[in-house]
Amino acid sequence: MRVTFIHADGKGRTEAEAVPGDILLDVAQAHLMPLEGTCEGQMACSTCHVIVAREDFDRLPPASEEEEDMLDLAAGARRTSRLSCQVVLTEALDGLTVHIPGESRNMQGAR
């Protein structure tokens, strides 16, 4: 399956291959996207915040109340924001497009 990351500058894009069951944050980090994921998926931070393309947002399962609370703290959060550590990829999400927030540009997510 395919995931497209739109770079924080809005100009670049990275096409990534994933398999069902992968966590979106792991796929992003494997492709050197600047998402930190400081809490390692425990929903104790918002450093893995992404903005899901409007046309793809309704394909995702709803965010939990805990995720919504963390998104309230995310810089630049929008209606279609999600924590990438909480998005488990499925075949139904093939072709998902997510935008890396401009606030992520200065993070050191590359391994």
Rank of each mutant, 00 (worst) to 15 (best):
E17P: 08
Q29R: 10
I6S: 05
S104I: 10
A77W: 12
A30Y: 12
A74E: 07
K11F: 02
A28D: 04
A28C: 09
D58S: 15
V50L: 09
D9F: 05
V87T: 11
L96K: 01
G95Q: 14
T90D: 09
E40T: 14
R13W: 01
L93Y: 04
H31T: 11
S46M: 07
H31K: 01
T47Y: 04
V50K: 14
R54N: 11
H49D: 05
S81T: 13
H99S: 02
L32T: 03
N106P: 05
K11S: 03
L93I: 08
R13T: 10
R2W: 07
D69F: 09
E67V: 13
R54W: 04
L71S: 02
M1A: 12
G109H: 13
A77Y: 06
E40P: 01
E17T: 11
A8G: 07
E40N: 06
A63R: 13
E68Q: 14
G76F: 01
P34F: 01
T4D: 05
V3D: 04
V87W: 11
T97I: 15
Q42D: 08
A75N: 02
D94R: 02
H31L: 00
H49S: 07
H49A: 07
V27F: 06
Q29V: 05
G10A: 13
Q42V: 05
H49Y: 01
A77C: 04
C85L: 04
T14S: 07
P61I: 11
S104C: 12
Q108Y: 12
A75L: 09
A8F: 12
V87S: 09
T14M: 02
R79N: 15
C85R: 00
T47N: 05
L89S: 06
G41V: 06
E36V: 00
P101W: 11
S84Q: 03
A44D: 10
E103A: 13
S64V: 03
S104D: 09
G37A: 01
I23P: 00
I51R: 01
C48V: 00
V52P: 03
V19H: 03
L73M: 11
T38E: 06
S46V: 00
L60D: 11
L96H: 02
T90F: 00
L60Y: 13
T38M: 06
H49T: 15
R105Q: 14
C85Y: 00
A18T: 01
H31E: 08
H49M: 08
